[in-house]
């Protein structure tokens, strides 16, 4: 994939980070506004696609670190399932930190943890997982296309058997 013109690249420089900010906003306010972990994670993963289209594959592959995205996927999944297990004296997926609406309006929330408890925390966990996973899918699919384009004609590519 070849890099696009300087106009597109400048637009990418200016606007690409706002995608990450907007996606983080959707993820973090998942319990208050429309959206949530899956939608916000998909918005964050759009960032990498935008960079791929604007700057081309070779620049992108020199920038990204796959281990980082893999660790994002693992961390998000483990945090999600760990939060589900932490409600276990009562039941799996019990919301152990949520307070009722009246108590939250009267000022009874736990400081930095949102009054909706594990709903907001699981939103963040799933958002991290989806952002890492979709970015990894974009990277791997682009690598597969490049493998197909650069392999000699008539040979089978993508398999070592």
């Amino acid at each position: 994939m070849n890099p696009l013109s300087v106009v597109v690249r400048k637009g990418c420089d200016i606007f690409a980070w706002f995608m990450v900010v907007f996606g983080a906003n959707v993820i973090i306010h998942g319990d208050l506004t429309p959206g949530g972990g899956f939608q916000g994670g998909a918005i964050v993963a759009t960032f990498l696609t935008f960079l791929l289209v604007a700057y081309g594959g070779n620049r992108l592959l020199s920038w990204v670190n796959e281990r980082f995205y893999t660790s994002l996927v693992g961390f998000g999944l483990l945090l999600f399932i760990g939060l589900a297990f932490m409600g276990f004296p009562t039941s799996f997926f019990y919301n152990f930190v949520s307070v009722t609406h009246e108590a939250a309006m009267a000022g009874g929330a736990h400081g930095i943890i949102p009054p909706s408890g594990t709903i907001a925390l699981m939103d963040i966990a799933v958002g991290i997982e989806v952002a890492g996973g979709l970015s990894l899918i974009v990277i791997y699919m682009f690598k597969g296309i490049r493998l197909y384009e650069t392999s000699p004609v008539g040979t089978e590519c993508g398999h070592d058997r």
């Binding site: 319990d31 939250a104 907001a120």
Partner: peptide, 9 residues
């Protein structure tokens, strides 16, 4: 009960 304004979430 859950003080989550987004019922879907």
């Amino acid at each position: 009960d859950r003080s989550s304004e987004n019922i879907v979430t």
